[in-house]
């Protein structure tokens, strides 16, 4: 592992937290800093391996998510998983779709 987050999910202070679950019901967490693929961070006291580079503010799976499962952030539904997502995996437009209107992205 690249480096390790030691604070065990304590309030921000001595060592800044790397990831945070905004609400206990959420199945995703957010990155509080840029995360590198392969590093291990601590989420709610449990180590979690990061799969894929994740930029600040972006989401990762906080637990196994099944295809068709509603994504919850701050206890609110923000879309539906279009494929199974493993814990620590990047959660974004490649594996989640809106329940209202499609998301528009420029061609890469």
């Amino acid at each position: 592992m690249a480096n390790s987050d030691q604070d065990g999910g304590q309030p921000a202070g001595k060592v800044a937290r790397a990831v945070m679950r905004l609400s206990p019901r959420d199945n995703v967490a957010v990155a509080l800093r840029a995360l590198k693929s392969g590093e291990t961070v601590t989420l709610d006291g449990v180590p979690i391996a990061i799969r894929g580079n994740i930029a600040v503010g972006h989401k990762l799976a906080a637990q196994p998510i099944e295809k068709g499962e509603i994504i919850l952030k701050y206890s609110c539904p923000i879309g539906t998983a279009t494929s199974p997502i493993a814990p620590g995996e990047y959660v974004h437009t490649h594996n989640v779709e809106s329940n209202y209107l499609p998301t528009y992205e420029l061609p890469k």
């Binding site: 989401k59 539904p77 879309g79 209202y100 998301t103 992205e105």
Partner: peptide, 12 residues
């Protein structure tokens, strides 16, 4: 598109 680049996945 910048909203998605910035980590927002859906309109909701």
């Amino acid at each position: 598109p910048g909203n998605a680049d910035g980590g927002l996945t859906t309109i909701e």
